[in-house]
Amino acid sequence: MESFNEYHIDPEQFTFLKSFQDNWQVIRDEFTRFMKNASDEELKFTYDILGPKSKTIKTKGNAKYSAFGILFQGLFIEEYIQVHQIEYSDYDSNDASEKALALREKYFPNLAKVIEKVNFSDDNLIRNVYFGTFHPGLDIKLHVNYNPHMNRGYLGLIVPEGDVAMKICHEQLYWHEGKFLVLDHSYPHCPHNYTNYDRTVLVVDFFKPDKPREEVMQFEKEQVTQRMQDNPYSLGVFGKSDKAKEEDFIKYGLAHQLEWDKALEA
């Protein structure tokens, strides 16, 4: 039996995740079809506009993490762009929004239907939905994604065999295709991919159902406002508070990452 705790949470208790899990192969097929058939222009637009960017989360070496999604803070991406009037060097907000909608409808109709179904029946519980790919050799430094009202679910879509895992606190946890790994990302964590293949999951952020909705919505609004002021291309997912504290590195036996950090700055 798998054991769970305050940061590694049993996905079975979140029945609304079943709609995603039941459709995991369809969702994976939409992702692989997009990666195979999208034009260079569509790919560039996707990673430039639909991918949440972080200024604080660092990776070791040259290995990359790439992400793009269709739902942010409970809004489909085209609406999120309009609400926040995000300015881009190559597009105005209206143009970016129209292109984002066209791309979502062309490549991800089934994923959108799942999101709409869950959020209709569960009062907009789902906040962010995006694909996250760890490329070979990726090693992300210890960090947090601070929101005490949110859990993050990872639905395994393409998971190679080997050492691709999430270190969180003193545990090392693994993704599995077709299954959810649910974590409280307020705890320090650092994932890696030491295989020779990409690992892709569907990231599903959702409110903790036991929290008062008015309270969590207010917290999210204030947090997203600050994050968008700091970095509008974060899409409200990442912020300055993502940095782990020095005592976290020591507490979780990762003090060597601090030395690596200092060496970079020297």
Rank of each mutant, 00 (worst) to 15 (best):
L138G: 07
H170K: 13
I140V: 13
L111H: 01
K179E: 14
H189G: 00
I77G: 07
A38P: 03
T59R: 03
A255M: 11
K60R: 14
V216T: 11
K221L: 09
F16G: 14
Y91N: 01
S54H: 02
K60I: 11
G61L: 10
V224L: 06
Q229F: 12
E98W: 00
S19P: 12
V204D: 08
P11I: 03
E220H: 07
P191G: 09
F120A: 14
D210S: 15
E79G: 10
K106C: 08
T225K: 15
R127A: 05
V159R: 03
K208Y: 01
Y146L: 11
G156W: 02
D95Q: 15
E79F: 01
V164L: 05
K53I: 03
N37V: 08
P209E: 02
A102N: 15
M228N: 05
S97A: 06
Y130T: 07
A38C: 09
Q172C: 11
H176N: 09
F180M: 10
F31I: 04
K106L: 03
D139M: 13
Y80Q: 02
S89Q: 13
Y146Q: 09
Q21E: 08
I49V: 14
Y7K: 04
D205R: 03
N145F: 02
E2A: 13
E116T: 06
P11R: 06
E98L: 12
R213W: 07
K44D: 09
P160G: 04
D123Y: 09
N128E: 02
A100T: 01
N62V: 15
E177L: 06
T133K: 12
K64C: 08
M150H: 06
P11S: 08
E116Y: 06
K53T: 06
L142Q: 00
N37A: 09
N62T: 12
K211Q: 13
K58Y: 05
T15V: 15
Y47W: 10
